[in-house]
Lab assay of single mutants.
Amino acid sequence: GIDPFTGEAIAKFNFNGDTQVEMSFRKGERITLLRQVDENWYEGRIPGTSRQGIFPITYVDVIKRPL
């Protein structure tokens, strides 16, 4: 089901994660935001896939912030 505490964002740019914990994505992908890790990073996942990880806040347009 849908978790009411998650947020939502759209990727503004392609992001290629450097490490296992970073999640790569392509511009235009819809991302579920799980939490804000710190002032620069979100943790999120791509709905319908097993992809999950952290990524820079500046790479996405936030539609709804996670609670």
Rank of each mutant, 00 (worst) to 15 (best):
G1I: 13
G1V: 12
G1A: 13
I2G: 14
I2N: 14
I2A: 14
D3V: 13
D3L: 11
D3H: 09
P4C: 15
P4D: 14
F5L: 13
F5G: 12
T6M: 07
T6Q: 09
G7H: 14
G7Y: 13
G7P: 06
G7W: 15
G7L: 07
E8H: 09
E8F: 13
A9N: 01
A9D: 00
A9C: 12
A11L: 01
K12I: 10
F13I: 11
F13N: 09
F13H: 12
N14T: 12
F15L: 02
F15V: 02
N16S: 11
N16C: 15
N16F: 12
G17C: 06
D18G: 11
Q20T: 10
Q20D: 14
Q20F: 12
V21D: 14
V21T: 11
V21Y: 14
V21R: 13
V21H: 14
V21L: 13
V21A: 13
E22R: 05
E22Q: 11
E22F: 10
M23Y: 01
M23L: 14
S24K: 05
S24C: 07
S24P: 08
F25R: 00
R26Q: 15
R26S: 14
K27I: 14
K27V: 13
K27Y: 07
G28R: 03
G28Q: 03
E29P: 00
E29L: 02
I31W: 00
I31F: 01
T32P: 00
T32G: 05
L33C: 08
L33F: 04
L33R: 02
R35V: 07
R35N: 07
Q36D: 04
Q36Y: 08
V37P: 03
V37R: 04
D38I: 05
D38M: 07
E39H: 10
E39Y: 09
E39D: 12
E39A: 11
N40P: 03
N40K: 11
W41S: 06
W41N: 08
Y42W: 14
Y42F: 13
E43I: 08
G44W: 02
G44I: 01
I46P: 00
I46A: 02
P47Q: 11
G48T: 05
G48S: 06
S50R: 11
S50T: 13
S50H: 09
S50I: 11
R51D: 02
Q52R: 11
Q52I: 09
G53Y: 01
G53N: 00
I54R: 08
I54H: 06
F55C: 01
F55T: 00
F55D: 00
F55K: 00
F55I: 12
F55H: 00
P56T: 02
P56A: 02
P56H: 04
I57Q: 08
T58Q: 14
T58R: 10
Y59F: 12
Y59V: 09
Y59I: 05
V60R: 00
V60W: 01
D61L: 14
D61Y: 15
I63D: 04
I63L: 10
K64T: 06
K64P: 05
R65P: 15
R65T: 14
R65Y: 15
R65W: 15
P66W: 03
P66L: 09
L67D: 15
L67H: 15
